[in-house]
Design a protein around this nucleic acid. Structure first.
Lengths: 206, 206
DNA sequence: CGCTAATCTAGAACAAGTTTCAGACTTGAT
DNA sequence: ATCAAGTCTGAAACTTGTTCTAGATTAGCG
């Protein structure tokens, strides 16, 4: 077995400084264009121009628009996770803390609804070729929720509950973004699904 | 207030026979193309050709590819609702019956995974301009679930649970379609979320 | 029937994602 | 410093969703 340590990324050759800078410029341009205009406003030619990179190069870094936007989402999620860590939620029960955390994330998205639109649409539109990246986003979300629950090693049941919470979170977000649900409705949905946590918590099991 | 009776559709002028036939041909072609190849295989030019209709006409009937696929989904949902009605689920509790119904629907989708892909991707990718149609699909799904629960007039809480179940259903479907979750995993997620029903059932509330 | 408005057709044209290619530039190793 | 391999650029080409246009067909009506 070859020496492939720490990170899970398989065989991503390390980028030079200029390449790292290019990547950063691209992601920045992507987020900026997404912020006003949402998914449609992120046009590959514009991203390329904004980030001072040739179209072909953009496609070398991100093999499709969806890849680009999912990567943008990964980027934003890291930000958010950092922010959330600084002020952990204050609820008494795990369910309350998770609901609070998600609502906080939700309010952050509300501040940039177009960006949210672009990222979420990309996420749900992603086909199999983007699975690894989407999975990474999903894992990151799981970590955030488990953090809020304050669990060391969750049971299988609790992990199932977390999965369902993530499903609800994504889908509720979509209904809100497409104007089919109000903010209040999203709040109710999140609180409703978080009750699942109580169901798995109170008693140890054989 | 003008006399606009029975149906909720606002001012859809009735179609002539030939128009109805065209519409049917289009939906059929759409489903057929979707069945092999999924979302990408439904190309508007091909749909037009397959259904013996000019491209412009196709766009008059369905103003975008997403509209077309969402309409295709409505069509399929009606089929399915009919089929499900004939053999109602047999579980003892509402939760069991809903889980059974959804798994049955899920197995039906498994038989045409490409069609499922096309319809679900369209549904989640739909923007505001398709909201009415997407909403219609959502209502139809709600009816199916309430049917399975066997409820006359659900409480607000129960409706919330149903909403969350729908969220989970959609999102779980997506993870399965994009190869990020196994069928077993989808089953677990559905069963997990259906437990929410128990939470709202046992006791009447003040 | 004969008229008018609406609808349909064929096909061109446009928009944005994606691919391709020839040539210039960087990088890393010798 | 020099060479080979890999990377980046600019521009054109290709694909597929969408729009537009001019002329044919159809539907409803007097």
């Amino acid at each position: 077995m070859p020496a492939e340590a720490s990170t899970s990324r398989p065989a991503t050759p390390p980028l030079t400084e200029r390449q790292e800078a290019r990547r950063r410029r691209i992601l920045h341009a992507s987020a900026q264009l997404a912020s006003r205009g949402g998914f449609d406003a992120v046009q590959m030619r514009e991203v390329a121009e904004s980030s001072q990179v040739a179209l072909g190069t953009l496609y070398r870094y991100f093999p499709s628009k969806v890849h680009l936007l999912v990567a943008t989402m990964q980027d934003q999620l890291e930000h958010m996770h950092g922010t959330l860590r600084k002020k952990p939620p204050a609820g008494d029960t795990a369910a309350e803390r998770v609901a609070e955390t998600l609502m906080r994330a939700f309010r952050a998205l509300q501040r940039e609804p177009h960006l949210a639109d672009a990222m979420v649409r990309a996420l749900t539109f992603a086909d199999r070729s983007v699975s690894p990246e989407v999975d990474q986003v999903s894992r990151q979300t799981t970590v955030i929720i488990l953090d809020a629950m304050g669990l060391e090693d969750p049971t299988a049941e609790q992990l199932s509950a977390v999965r369902v919470i993530e499903h609800t979170w994504h889908s509720a977000l979509i209904t809100w973004l497409s104007g089919r649900a109000s903010i209040a409705q999203v709040k109710i949905d999140i609180e409703t699904v978080c009750r699942l946590i109580d169901l798995t918590e109170p008693s140890g099991r054989p």
